[in-house]
């Protein structure tokens, strides 16, 4: 493997971006995450992993390199110095995709079964006008959890876990222009499934005619040929309004999750909650150990 043509030249040292581990305004610790796989994954699931990494931006390792022989311990060893607080692990035991969300280094670990999933590319393909500007991913998404209040202790734990996975926002200091994405987790009490969606937020002024909206948002030169005066352009339909509408467009992966198990430690330890009975639970544990 000839990696470097010239021996005298040294490997290019990438400038390390000094990402602060503490928010400079609120002073809170910024959660960081690793998204990686355990065991071998089929193609679509690997794509899902990449999509999840993108979703977790900017405080995640987008280009995290994994190897077959990497153990959980390896990631844990790196996580400490890097200030990584959360692991998202995708595994595929017995061809049933699983997502595990864990806090490092102590745990707990929440295991979800991925019932259904659609990749970001699939969603973009299904839309008439897909759009996903790059600057969306320079800020972390908001998270909206709904329907979790009704359940028991395990749901509360899940809520806390997901709330802490993204940096907390302080409503006194947050800039609304930085809130461009939203992750929705909706718990359905009947089916006990969690819908995981990822949208991007668009603000549209209300009560303004289409022409002005186009002019303001897209900077298109308006056609004023039929107008007598410039004021006509502004005053024709527009009511004075102080509101703007929130429009959401789906991006990123879509998942339907089922909460399967909660463990106390990092992929180990006592089982706090299990969807299945005792026997099934044991079987699951074996699964986890094999990968």
């Amino acid at each position: 493997m000839a990696r470097f043509k010239n021996k005298n030249k040294k490997a290019p040292v990438r400038p390390v971006k000094n990402q602060p581990s503490v928010d400079h305004i609120t002073g809170q610790k910024i959660p960081k995450s690793f998204v990686f796989s355990r065991g071998k994954l089929p193609g679509p699931l690997r794509d899902l992993e990449l999509d999840l990494r993108k979703l977790m931006l900017p405080h995640t390792a987008l280009k995290l390199k994994e190897k077959k022989r990497n153990k959980l311990k390896d990631f844990l060893n790196v996580a400490g110095p890097m200030g990584v607080t959360h692991f998202l692990m995708i595994s595929n035991p017995k061809s049933i995709p699983h997502l595990r969300v864990a806090r490092t280094p102590q745990g707990p670990t929440i295991t979800f079964e991925i019932h259904e999933y659609a990749l970001a590319a699939d969603i973009a393909r299904s839309q008439a006008r897909p759009s996903c500007p790059k600057e969306l991913f320079s800020n972390s998404p908001l998270i909206v959890l709904s329907g979790f209040g009704s359940g028991g202790q395990h749901l509360k734990l899940t809520t806390i876990m997901f709330q802490n996975i993204f940096p907390a926002i302080d409503i006194n200091t947050v800039k609304l222009s930085s809130c461009r994405r939203i992750v929705l987790l909706n718990y359905n009490n009947e089916t006990k499934l969690i819908d995981f969606r990822h949208y991007f937020i668009r603000l549209q002024p209300i009560g303004v005619s289409q022409r002005i909206r186009k002019f303001v948002q897209k900077h298109e030169v308006p056609d004023l040929r039929n107008l007598q005066d410039v004021s006509d352009f502004v005053t024709k339909v527009n009511r004075a309004s102080t509101k703007s509408a929130v429009r959401l467009q789906e991006i990123g992966p879509r998942m339907t999750l089922r909460l399967v198990k909660i463990e106390e430690g990092l992929c180990s330890g006592a089982v706090i909650f299990s969807e299945f009975g005792k026997e099934a639970d044991d079987a699951h544990e074996e699964e986890d150990h094999e990968d």
Binding site: I96, C179, I182, L248
Partner: peptide, 25 residues
């Protein structure tokens, strides 16, 4: 397994989810 291709239109469930998210935002 589990990989689905979403429909080209927004079904009732998706609409509901978008509504929930919008409310939150």
């Amino acid at each position: 397994n589990g990989h689905i291709k979403p429909a080209n239109f927004l079904d009732a469930k998706e609409k509901f989810l978008i509504g929930v998210a919008t409310k939150g935002v």
